[in-house]
């Protein structure tokens, strides 16, 4: 697209376009236009299903007839489908459940990740290597491998059909320990030793020195964990059968499958589950994208 040779490159440094864009590399206008066009077509493909969902969810007649050619503007805009959807399922309660579950499990996960990360990065004790390998080895065990006995265990503990069942198994993980250990290892020992000289205990050092220095890594971990927990469906399907304890994702899955024939209502239900999450995403997008990039995980 942009066959730059040395000469054109050096010349480009003084070209008006390079000057306007503040760039030292040459970017041809045509090349930039082509890129913008291709990427915009892709972006349109990303947005179109959502836009169509919203348009359809606002149409009452979408429940019995749909236009053969899709439209992005409902012929009869009304909030009827949303009223039906929110009567059919207690979506606000589901939001509350999701927030409790995701909040508690993420806080616990961050705390234990940092704590174990600190122990493995800065501690000196017998069996450290073996314990670290044991923590890492849990990374190799997919959740699906252990979900059947885990379900039985939850039954035995009488925790099925309680939000605790959605929190407890996800408080510790090899990934968090590993990520935090890598991060805490880069904190200078002198800083920690100085605090020890002042008589601070390890937990105080952890709370006052290590945790504040870990904020960026903890933020990345939190983002990944929140996405992961919020979207989980397999485990809630197993342990939660009480309709009042569904998370948003589970409520959507079960309600959505049930009202499949009422397109308008089903898509309004989907919108109720998606749109608030998207608003949060758009507010926090900078942090979320950075968190995903630094951790390499998608949640």
């Amino acid at each position: 697209m942009n066959m730059t040779s040395v000469d054109s490159r050096t010349r480009a440094r003084r070209s008006p376009i390079a000057w306007l864009t503040g760039s030292t590399r040459r970017y041809s206008v045509a090349g930039q236009m082509a890129i913008v066009v291709v990427l915009s077509v892709g972006a349109l493909a990303m947005v179109l299903p959502f836009a169509w969902m919203i348009a359809t969810s606002l149409s009452r007649q979408a429940n019995f007839t749909m236009p053969r050619i899709p439209t992005l503007w409902p012929p009869d805009p009304s909030l009827f489908n949303y009223r039906v959807a929110s009567t059919n399922l207690p979506i606000f309660r589901y939001y509350l459940n999701s927030i409790v579950v995701v909040g508690a499990s993420t806080l616990g996960y961050l705390f234990f990740s940092a704590l174990t990360g600190y122990a493995f990065a800065k501690g000196r004790f017998r069996g450290k290597q073996i314990l670290f390998v044991a923590f890492l080895a849990t990374l190799l065990i997919p959740f699906e491998t252990r979900m059947i006995p885990l379900y039985a265990l939850m039954s035995d503990l009488h925790l099925n059909d309680s939000l605790v069942a959605l929190i407890l198994p996800f408080l510790v993980g090899g990934f968090g320990t590993f990520l935090m250990r890598q991060h805490i290892a880069s904190i200078p020992d002198d800083l920690i030793d100085a605090a020890r000289q002042d008589g601070a205990g390890e937990f105080l050092i952890f709370r006052r020195i290590v945790l504040p220095l870990c904020k960026p890594a903890l933020a990345a971990l939190a983002i990944v964990n929140v996405i992961w927990r919020w979207n989980d469906i397999l485990w809630p399907l197993l342990v939660i059968s009480n309709r009042n304890l569904y998370t948003v994702t589970q409520g959507l899955a079960i309600a959505g499958r049930g009202q499949g024939i009422f397109t308008g209502v089903a898509l309004a239900t989907a919108a109720l589950a998606i749109v608030p999450v998207m608003v949060v995403y758009l507010i926090l997008q900078r942090h979320i994208i950075r968190g995903i990039t630094t951790s390499g995980m998608k949640g």
Binding site: T21, L39, M46, F50, T249, G256, A273, I288, I289, I292
Partner: peptide, 27 residues
């Protein structure tokens, strides 16, 4: 290679990833 507007595009392309697979499948 894009000079301007890479951030909004990133945000848009990442939009479906943030939506749960359940919601995506439903749509």
């Amino acid at each position: 290679r894009l000079r301007r507007g890479a951030t909004p595009l990133k945000v848009i392309y990442f939009l479906p990833q943030l939506t749960s697979s359940v919601a995506v499948a439903l749509i």
